[in-house]
């Protein structure tokens, strides 16, 4: 019987990327580092023809995601949203993100947005995955995003966020309470 005991390079990359994403969401606020590939690697490990996605203002990336077989749809329909939220105007567009239903709260969007970690806006996080509380600093996210997020989340309804700084990732599930400092 031929069983493959060794993963291919693709297997290893998507597996390792997912592992970091899993821990990032399990421990909100703690920076996890992807092996390589940043956003593209995250997309590759999750998205295929069973999914829908939306890319704001990045035709090349959108084209790359389409090759996975995933459907490009509007912001309000997408399961996976790759976007930039560095201005108030851009943030306000995202009020339409999917937040799931009470029967299926998992049918909600996951948002990926570039940010820079370690300086900028201070945020105090509490909730599942966080021992007591955790304070982080992120830059490149318009401050209005945090209010928009709070308004959008009617727990368990809500969307989940990955902030991405190169290969560094912070996960902010809807269960995390964020206090803007």
């Amino acid at each position: 019987m031929t069983l493959s005991l060794l993963p291919t390079a693709d297997d290893s990359r998507t597996n390792a990327t997912f592992e970091e994403m899993m821990w990032a969401l399990s421990r909100p606020g703690i920076v996890r580092t992807l092996p390589a590939g940043g956003l593209a690697a995250m997309a590759e490990s999750l998205i295929d023809r069973e999914c829908s996605f939306h890319v704001e203002d990045d035709v090349e990336f959108e084209h790359a995601l389409k090759r996975s077989g995933a459907r490009a749809v509007s912001l309000s329909e997408a399961e996976y949203v790759f976007t930039v939220i560095d201005t108030e105007e851009k943030v306000s567009r995202h009020a339409v993100l999917r937040t799931g239903t009470l029967a299926y709260p998992d049918e909600a969007a996951t948002l990926f947005a570039p940010a820079r970690f370690g300086f900028g806006q201070g945020l105090r996080l509490t909730g599942p995955g966080i021992k007591d509380s955790l304070t982080i600093a992120v830059d490149g996210i318009d401050p209005s995003f945090w209010q928009m997020r709070e308004r959008a989340i009617r727990y368990p309804l809500g969307f989940d966020v990955y902030l991405v700084d190169g290969d560094d990732v912070i996960g902010l599930p809807r269960s995390t309470k964020i206090e803007v400092l």
Partner: peptide, 30 residues
Amino acid sequence: WAAFNYGFLDESAKRELRRRILKAIAIPGC
């Protein structure tokens, strides 16, 4: 072609599980 993938499940099955696991973590207990 390979008779079976590493870890038995093919990549599309794994991707689906990854997506579901992340949502499960985001909504504890759901």
